[in-house]
Amino acid sequence: MADVVALLERWQRGDKSALDEMVPSVYDELKRLARVYLSRERPDHSLQPTELVHEAYVRLVAQREVDWRNRAHFLGVAAQVIRRILLHHAEHRSAKKREGYSRRVSLDAALECLERDATVDILTLNAAMERLAEMDPRQSQIVELRVFGGLTVEEAAAVLDLSATTVKREWSVARLWLQKELQ
């Protein structure tokens, strides 16, 4: 597995490609965690994306005592990954429905857990976020960090190098816009 901390450090120094290199590690870890969660067979355990991401973070990075800013960056990356995983899963499932295909692999079941707890439909939300990104890429990024990464306003502000006030303002406006779009 690539050293996530080293990649984060490269990313912070401005090496954009580090982010892409990081995604597979984070993706693998998230998938692995999802399986572990499932195998625990705890019906009462509702799997939250935030929880997954935080645990992946602790496993991949936190043992190395990475500083707070790095943590926010990691959560930012994980947010992208979670969004991809959820999206992929949702598209896959709707395709299968059309084909009348119903076998499920264990990973899919884990992801379904993720989705069941979401208050909105992933595919619709994603489409709306893409429309938002065309009008206002920064807002779309904020939504991604907050919804898929579980980042607080302050953490998102650190990732994007904005003030918390700005992020809060952008977030509340974007939330209203998405709400209208999804109605």
Binding site: T119, V120, V147, Q179
Partner: peptide, 16 residues
């Protein structure tokens, strides 16, 4: 105004 109408204090939509 349309967007503003969506701002209800206890709305659950993406209420993080």
């Amino acid at each position: 105004l349309t967007l503003l109408r969506g701002d209800e204090p206890d709305s659950n939509f993406l209420n993080l």
